[in-house]
Design a protein around this nucleic acid. Structure first.
Length: 359
DNA sequence: CATCCGTGGCT
DNA sequence: TAGCCAAGGAT
């Protein structure tokens, strides 16, 4: 019992210190209701919280912010997004990466509109049933949008907790232990603010490299700091080298200056996105025009390189005018280059193909 | 539990 | 330059 009493006091000290820090240092973010406005009674919009959390998965605030505004402007609420064409959502997402998020975003909007009366469910379990919403996102929405006592663990909070308790078990095996420890310091009130405060702390103070412990409100509670081993936590496994893959793409241009694109299969890399037609990508691959969309006078203009999550890619880029009588396939589309909403690797290839043509 | 899935910025 | 990293989820 004596230990429980001491622990309880220590826990409340941690959450109080963090919340005090958050009140004074909260970042101003487009999707966030500032602490003082929250206290004045302003409620966050669950739709905006959901949209921001999906966009922020493995993606930086700087990349998300302009896209968040654009999405909110075009689809102000879940009903609007549910009514949108999937292709428009994918197009608006182009360049943001992890395109399954965009497909699931649209699916999720449809489910919320059709099966939940246009209102997001407020419990973690119900949220987790929706496509694109996993452990983290369900907890984040429940805590931030609905004020539920959910324990939110993202990469930042994982790092902070691993340091607070000097958890030397390596990730990802340590995730369960970290969640348990996080739960032990989680407050009953202001759970959303506590989560956002920890994320801000992780982004600006308890950083992976060069943490600013002198500015940390939790330094006095931090085991890693006490050991002077802050940067050694969390323990991560060695990363595997990324293999090299090669391929070729073919930019076919019609009389209007439009370029032929081809929709990728729904599943897998760049799923559902329009890309330049070309060869499969492999360690050794022929760049011959065998994989071109048409027989034409192909000219190789150069190559582009791109780094994906798990491999490096080099693409030979070819260009030709469409032969007379060419008919596009069912999965193919003529698109004006300026209107092409395509993945970044294809934007690179397109730009290179059209660069020296004066188009 | 391991693998797949993008991209841009920073060191 | 090469590596590391970011408010993860689905399979």
């Amino acid at each position: 019992m004596a230990y429980e009493t001491r622990d309880t006091k220590n826990i409340s000290r941690i959450s109080e210190a963090l919340l005090r820090w958050y009140d004074a240092n909260a970042r101003v973010l487009p999707w966030r209701v500032a602490p003082h406005l929250r206290k004045a009674g302003q409620k966050p919009d669950p739709y905006a919280v959901w949209l921001s959390e999906i966009m922020l998965q493995q993606t930086t605030v700087a990349s998300v912010a302009p896209r968040f505004f654009r999405f909110l402007e075009r689809w102000p609420d879940v009903a609007a997004m549910a009514a949108a064409e999937a292709d428009d959502v994918l197009g608006e997402w182009a360049g943001l990466g992890y395109y399954a998020r965009a497909r699931n975003l649209h699916k999720c909007a449809g489910i919320v509109a059709d099966e939940h009366g246009g209102k997001f469910p407020c419990t973690e379990d119900a949220l987790k049933m929706l496509p694109g919403i996993g452990d983290y996102t369900a907890a984040a929405i429940a805590a931030i949008a609905f004020g539920q006592p959910a324990v939110v663990v993202d990469g930042n909070i994982e790092r902070i907790v691993a340091r607070l308790f000097a958890i030397d078990k390596p990730l990802p095996g340590a995730k369960a232990l970290i969640k348990e420890r996080a739960g032990a310091i989680w407050p009953q009130q202001r759970c959303g603010d506590f989560a956002q405060g920890l994320m801000d702390l992780g982004a600006g103070v308890c950083r992976p490299k060069a943490p600013k412990c002198s500015a940390c409100p939790l330094a006095g509670h931090c085991a890693a700091h006490r050991l002077d081993l802050v940067e050694d936590f969390p323990v991560k496994p060695a990363k595997k080298p990324k293999p090299l893959r090669k391929g070729a793409v073919f930019a076919l241009v019609n009389a209007k200056g439009e370029v032929l694109f081809e929709r990728r299969p729904e599943k897998g890399l760049l799923g559902g996105m329009f890309c330049l037609p070309g060869s499969p990508w492999a360690e050794k691959v022929s760049e011959s025009p065998a994989h071109a969309p048409a027989t034409a006078k192909w000219r190789r203009v150069g190559e582009v390189t791109h780094i994906f999550t798990h491999f490096h890619l080099t693409l030979g880029v070819n260009i030709a005018k469409a032969p007379k009588g060419f008919r596009r396939g069912r999965k193919q589309q003529w698109i004006a280059p300026k209107l092409a909403r395509v993945p970044t690797v294809m934007k690179k290839a397109l730009d290179l193909a059209l660069k020296d043509r004066g188009i």
